[in-house]
């Protein structure tokens, strides 16, 4: 069976947020990303799914330069990623990221986690940073926990803090790397609700997730990956309900 790569066409007449072309990455001799080409439009919600080891996390980590890649090109709003500090600064200003293991700073309170970037990078005054952070914490429903430390709150609450921490920097694009995989089943919903609300605000989002309910509810397109290649791209109804490839169907049968 040969899998072909197809570069997906943008479904909406928006400007392009991210353009990936011919992306290849190796870990040693292991070819983890193979000729990935994909465009993501502004305000698009893209869900990336696939079995573990298929390279989906690696793909989105390449988008904000947490990983180096050997071949290909990634552009963010027309700005091509380069290996220098200036390019990194632009990328990190434009793209926010939420991790599977939250990665909150344990020595800082919830509020300090959110204000850190504002005071040190955006040079906001303490009260201004505090107001912004509090309004974001309000939005994700945990303003009452502002003075707690990450070790004192539940996983779902920690992930919502992580989302507010990213949003505080006013990114144009948000990347979610399996944001609910490390959570107890009861806490998954509270994080997904926040993501659904965020999707409604018109944020460009790329989510690696196995929450197919979420994909069906908000995604504009779903990408299915296998062995470092994109197998299928398309609207959720098409990819999830009527997959064209046997591998996609097999995967979906397993997780649905």
């Amino acid at each position: 069976m040969t899998l072909q790569n197809r570069s997906a066409t943008t479904p909406e007449p928006h400007g392009r947020a991210i353009e990936i072309s011919g992306l290849n990455k190796w870990y040693g001799a292991h070819h983890v990303l193979r000729d990935i080409s994909l465009d993501i439009a502004e305000s698009e919600i893209m869900v990336v799914c696939g079995p573990s080891g298929s390279g989906k996390s690696t793909l989105i980590r390449c988008l904000n330069h947490l990983e180096e890649y050997q071949e290909g090109e990634v552009s963010v709003f027309g700005h091509t990623l380069q290996r220098n500090t200036q390019s990194d600064r632009y990328i990190h200003q434009t793209i926010g990221m939420v991790f599977q293991s939250f990665n909150l700073f344990p020595h800082l309170s919830v509020l300090q986690n959110c204000t850190l970037g504002l005071t040190w990078l955006r040079k906001k005054s303490d009260s201004e940073a505090r107001d912004i952070a509090m309004s974001l914490l309000e939005r994700v429903g945990i303003a009452n926990l502002a003075d707690r430390f990450p070790g004192q709150i539940s996983g779902g609450q920690q992930q919502r803090v992580a989302i507010s921490r990213s949003l505080a920097m006013e990114p144009k694009i948000m990347l979610f790397d399996e944001p609910t995989s490390a959570l107890d089943p009861e806490m998954v919903k509270e994080v997904l609700d926040v993501m659904v609300n965020l999707a409604k605000t018109g944020m460009t989002m790329v989510c690696v997730t196995h929450e197919m309910q979420f994909a069906r509810q908000v995604a504009d397109r779903v990408v299915f990956m296998e062995d470092g290649e994109i197998v299928e791209v398309g609207p959720p109804e098409q990819v999830l309900l009527n997959p064209q490839w046997d591998r996609t169907k097999e995967f979906l049968d397993h997780i649905l």
């Binding site: 904000n64 947490l66 500090t85 990194d88 600064r89 990190h92 200003q93 793209i95 926010g96 990221m97 991790f99 293991s101 990665n103 909150l104 700073f105 850190l116 970037g117 040190w120 990078l121 992580a162 921490r165 990213s166 920097m169």
Partner: peptide, 14 residues
């Protein structure tokens, strides 16, 4: 943990 460095990098802290 590596995640701390990555989170800081993703926030744009140099």
């Amino acid at each position: 943990p590596r995640g701390q460095y990555e989170a800081a990098q993703a926030l744009g802290l140099g």
